[in-house]
Nucleic acid binder design. Structure first.
Length: 577
RNA sequence: GCGCCCGUAGCUCAACUGGAUAGAGCAUCGGCCUUCUAAGCCGAGGGUUGAAGGUUCGAGUCCUUCCGGGCGCGCCA
């Protein structure tokens, strides 16, 4: 049950009935506790349109609503220039909680199912995954989990970079090591070092550089030995990525990888089709697509190069082929690209070309979901070349170690296995939450200590709230399913907690509008804060039977909601910490 | 030069897309562990929302100009 939507619908209907068509009711959660639970903001706008007095209109609306179904669950109060403040009464809240408790989906309805492809993570296999990959990976995975929960058919698309000039030196280096009798499997253990060694050799050794360039040509022309080396490298690199995904609880599997090279055999055919449709122009020896929407200064058209003058295919060609595959073969309803905001022009060109070519229909929604660039503490861009890269694996390891130390202090009685498991879940939760909770499209600053913090608005805070509840149930030794006591909301802490719990469905709906995971993070943090206040001010086990059971049920629903919400974020909970 | 994104407390970020006195966390200061886990709770200080205009009942949010930052603009991905 989506409370906000229900109220909004009712007030919108009332406005319409009073002759105010096309006037949104704009029901929102109250901005302050003193205003009640919800507020209607749309009266002023409607009055303005109709040139009437807003407070008089508010009175009419209130009068009308009082005659309807909501009158016995709602207290209304007109305030300020024409707000209507709404408070839900406790019997209603308590009944709604009952419904929510009885629902495995916690009151969240399923959506009209669509086939939605999510392009995310998509690391370049020539490098080890670094901190910069966390955004796309964590946010994309949260979107995947949310959309699947809502009932959609989600296609995870890990569009890894496994092709192109950068592999020349890697293959040449592999070949060199192989010739020298080194164990390639061992050498590939640390990909970052491997890449750096190859890159260093490329810069310092002319002969090696020449060989590397030859390897690029050989690779593209399908040289067998070269392809063999290449596939060994790719296989190893994907294994590294998968290990990171598993460690981070990312739901991607090897089966979700569809690499750039998978589109190689589509490239020429796709470009021919573009040519047949008159979209291709040869400019300075390169095949380009010029579109009217993309012009620079003085109306100069900005090209999208789909084939370089040397015959090579840039990633635009691959991306067009992939868009065609996604649009025509997979027939997706939506494709969401969780990609760095700097690629905005590229992706907009891509979508425009794919539409012009008929690869994407009007009904198919291809969207760039952008995010900002990582900056260092000085606000300068994070450079990956000059040793500034922070490996994702290192961040994870550090987080787990810090969590382990802390658990040793706080809870020394746990077994080693328990500590290890908890440390992983808490540590990983902390770094994922750090990304997810500031899901802005702006650039953001990577700070090791902020990311690894376990205090305040962090995943461990939410996980801790969960363990406190679990601890109560261990002591009470009751099965929440057996509790039948109607929920009583006598303390303000109980009412606030109850209302927040009931707002879970509308929170998920607003996350879906723009895939902003931070909205869910904020909700879960506020829920935890309200629970913590409740925990401090409303004793559970010491209360008399009725109140005790009522509070136990509030506790249980809080735990379920926290666990569920964290689950959608890809963050696990633990029983103790 | 053209285009996109952005500027909110000392720091990191919110503000549900035009609503009421701009909120959290960290840091600082003061309280709270013989009572369900103190990774916690309660309280205090901290703001000309980069600047100036404009639109209107009402602007952090919309429009204009300026200042400052990041990024993108023909053969890297």
């Amino acid at each position: 049950m989506n409370l906000k939507k229900q109220l909004d619908t009712e007030f919108e209907r009332t406005l319409t009935a009073l002759g105010h068509t096309d006037a949104p009711a704009v029901v929102k959660q109250a901005s302050k506790a003193e205003f009640g639970h919800y507020q209607v903001n749309g009266i002023m706008g409607a009055a303005k349109k109709a040139r009437t007095n807003p407070r008089e209109l508010a009175e009419k609306v209130v009068e009308q609503v009082q005659q309807g179904d909501l009158s016995n669950i709602l207290t209304m109060e007109i305030a300020g220039p024409g707000f209507i403040n709404l408070s839900l009464n406790q019997a209603f809240l308590s009944a709604e909680l009952e419904t929510m408790i009885g629902d495995d989906r916690l009151g969240v309805a399923t959506s009209q199912p669509e086939k939605i492809l999510i392009d995310y993570s998509s690391p370049n296999l020539a490098k080890e995954m670094h901190i910069g990959h966390l955004r796309s990976t964590a946010i994309g995975d949260a979107a995947v989990r949310l959309l699947e929960f809502l009932g959609h058919d989600v296609v995870r698309a890990n569009h890894v970079g496994d092709w192109g000039a950068q592999f020349g030196s890697l293959l040449a280096y592999m070949d060199k090591l192989d010739a020298e009798g080194a164990q390639l499997a061992t050498e590939l253990k640390d990909l970052e070092i491997f890449y750096q060694s190859a890159s260093a050799l490329f810069k310092s050794d002319e002969a090696f550089a020449a060989t590397a360039r030859e390897f690029v040509v050989k690779l593209q022309s399908g040289d067998e030995k070269c392809l063999d080396l290449w596939s060994r490298f790719i296989e190893e690199s994907i294994k590294h990525c998968q290990a990171i995904y598993d460690l981070l609880d990312i739901s991607l599997t090897p089966g979700d990888v569809k690499a750039e090279s998978a589109y190689n055999n589509m490239l020429e055919g796709t470009l021919s089709e573009l040519d047949e449709k008159g979209l291709i122009t040869i400019s300075e020896g390169a095949r380009c697509v010029f579109l009217d929407e993309f012009v620079g200064k003085d109306g100069d058209p900005i090209p999208a190069i789909v084939q370089k003058s040397d015959g090579g295919y840039p990633y635009m060609a691959t991306d067009i082929a992939a868009a065609k595959y996604r649009g025509q073969d997979l027939k997706v309803n939506q494709a969401l690209y969780f990609v760095d905001g700097r690629q905005a022009l590229h992706l907009n060109q891509l979508y425009a070309i794919a539409r012009k070519a008929g690869y994407i229909t009007e009904e198919q929604n291809f969207v760039h979901v952008p995010f900002g660039t990582i900056l260092n503490k000085e606000g300068r861009p994070f450079k990956t070349r000059d040793g500034g890269a922070v490996k994702l694996a290192d961040v994870a390891e550090e987080a787990i170690n810090r969590a382990l130390t802390l658990i040793g202090d706080k809870n020394p009685d746990l077994t080693n296995d328990e500590k290890q498991n908890i440390a992983r879940i808490v540590g990983i939760g902390a770094i994922k939450y750090a990304e997810l909770s500031k899901n802005r499209t702006t650039d953001y600053i990577f700070d090791w200590d902020t990311m690894l913090s376990f205090e305040g608005n962090t995943a461990p805070y939410l996980q801790y709230a969960y363990t406190r509840i679990k601890s109560i149930f261990r002591r009470a030794d009751v099965d929440p399913a057996n509790l039948k006591q109607a929920i009583m909301l006598n303390q303000t802490a109980e009412v606030s907690l109850a209302l927040k719990l009931l707002q879970y469905p509308e929170t998920l709906e607003s996350v879906t509008e723009d895939y902003q995971a931070n909205i869910l993070c904020n909700y879960l943090f506020e829920l935890s804060q309200l629970f913590m206040s409740f925990y401090e001010s409303c004793p559970v086990l010491k209360a008399t039977d009725e109140i005790r059971d009522s509070r136990l049920r509030l506790c249980d629903l809080s735990a379920r909601t926290l666990r569920h919400g964290l689950g959608l974020l890809g963050i696990q909970t633990v029983e103790q910490m």
